[in-house]
């Protein structure tokens, strides 16, 4: 259980041209935590997630996931432990049918056929999409694609889940389904998002990134009441926070 932690130290990543995408980032996320990763577009959220999933490799600094350092050698192992759900589900789902897609990960892990099938059924059940098992991937709706993308990652039974803007492009119904799904997960979750209403519901802790640096790491509620920080990260205070603030102000006024 204690293996589900993510520890980064002095992480640095630069693009080919030299521009720094990630500049001296350090944090510790422990088992079972659900952490929101917020920041403006281009702040470095997606890049950071890809570093955590060993899809990209940092030039400086270390990433320690459950006592294993992320290197090119350990990449395959890390990628099984850390599942990544992409922002664009069309890029994540590339197999012709849903069952092929979900089975892709387990088959690559070398599991036997029965185990692959068990995991496929289990993953579909977790996201409530058992009826879609034999569907064609291209024909799924946006919300369905998102659910199947999550299922395809869950089938690998990762310990940590990384999600890049999971609620973007979803209609309210699908978004609610997604939030409920994430609520039911016991995995350690790092969710890069602009959807502060979702953060309010799911993530007690937030890390805010601006220009590749961490500008805030603490309770989400503290972030929501910090207008300066919200502005720096191009975010707006969620309504629930506004209402809480108004309630607090009302309490104080009625106390006086």
């Amino acid at each position: 259980m204690s293996h589900h932690y993510i520890k980064t130290e002095n992480l640095e990543y630069s693009y080919y041209g030299g521009a720094k995408a990630i500049d001296d980032i350090s944090f510790l996320i422990t088992h079972g935590e659900k952490v929101a990763l917020v920041g403006a577009n281009g702040a470095g959220k997606s890049t950071l997630l890809m570093l955590l999933n060993a899809l990209k490799f940092a030039q400086k600094g270390t990433i320690d996931i459950g006592n294993t350092f992320v290197t090119e050698k350990t990449a395959k192992f890390i990628r099984q432990k850390v599942g990544f759900i992409f922002q664009n589900s069309d890029n994540q789902l590339f197999m012709p049918t849903v069952s092929d897609e979900i089975a892709f990960g387990p088959i690559n892990m070398g599991l036997p056929k029965e185990e692959v099938e068990r995991r496929t059924d289990m993953a579909l059940q977790r996201v409530g999409c058992e009826s879609l098992k034999n569907n064609i991937t291209s024909h799924l709706s946006g919300g369905q694609k998102r659910s199947i993308a999550i299922a395809s990652v869950l089938a690998m039974e990762p310990e940590i889940l990384l999600m890049d803007e999971p609620s973007s492009n979803l209609d309210p119904f699908s978004r609610r389904l997604l939030i409920n799904q994430i609520k039911s997960f016991t995995h350690t979750c790092v969710i890069a998002t602009h959807d502060l209403e979702m953060v309010w519901e799911l993530c007690p802790r937030s890390i805010a990134i601006s220009n590749g640096k961490i500008v805030f790491d603490g309770l989400s509620k503290e972030l929501f009441y910090n207008q300066e920080l919200l502005n720096e990260c191009h975010l707006e205070q969620p309504y629930l926070a506004k209402i809480e603030q108004m309630k607090e102000a009302e309490k104080i006024r009625s106390a006086n």
Partner: peptide
Amino acid sequence: SRAEMINYSMIARGYDGDIKTF
């Protein structure tokens, strides 16, 4: 760009150059 992301998606799920199916 899309191809790059798809490739990442494949690698993230253990793709090693050979698409295996039963």
